[in-house]
């Protein structure tokens, strides 16, 4: 399948190779996230995946999202995760109790989904190319979009964040 993915043609060899390397890192990292016996290792693998995603965004010309990804995900969310891990489990070493007894159930389901998705995508997009001169999206464009047509979802998001802050405090408060 990697032959299909990397059906690199004459142009943009560098990007394709870059994509391949990052993608490989991401997939391996993701597999580590879901299989690792060590919670901290899993969290660090997740960092790898998220950083890889940021790199892919840059490849796709979405620098602003990439920077947000690094700031929010790798910076903030991961710290939250590590805190969560440490506050709930003092143990940093291996644990045997991370998986369900019926973990194997996930394999057929995931493979089935992957099969369907891969089929649909390969069938649907064939070898459609991204525009070669994909210019990066300026932050000003995004801000115009966020504060223009997408203003209502944006406001909704702000409400969600406020609710999350309040909810987090209420839930985690000791009394």
């Amino acid at each position: 399948m990697s032959a299909v993915i990397l059906a690199a043609d004459d142009i943009q060899v560098a990007q394709n190779i870059g994509f391949g390397i990052i993608a490989a890192i991401m997939v391996i990292g993701a597999l580590k996230v879901v299989t690792s016996k060590n919670v901290v290792h899993a969290a660090l693998s997740l960092v790898l995946v998220l950083s890889g995603a940021a790199a892919q965004y840059i490849l796709l010309g979405a620098e602003f999202v990439a920077v947000s990804q690094i700031l929010v995900y790798v910076g903030a969310v991961m710290v939250l995760f590590l805190f969560g891990v440490m506050l709930t489990r003092a143990k940093l070493g291996k644990e045997t109790d991370l998986d369900q007894p019926k973990a194997w159930l996930g394999v057929p389901v995931a493979l089935l989904m992957l099969g369907v998705l891969a089929w649909v995508l390969i069938d649907g997009f064939q070898d459609e190319r991204l525009p070669a001169d994909a210019t990066s999206k300026a932050a000003v464009e995004i801000s115009d979009s966020v504060l223009g047509p997408a203003l209502v979802p944006f406001l909704a998001l702000t409400f969600v964040l406020v609710a999350a802050v309040i909810g987090g405090i209420v839930l985690a408060r000791k009394d």
Partner: peptide, 11 residues
């Protein structure tokens, strides 16, 4: 598992 499995089958 059931949810995702059903979604996949549905798709």
């Amino acid at each position: 598992a059931l949810l995702f499995g059903a979604a996949a089958v549905g798709a």
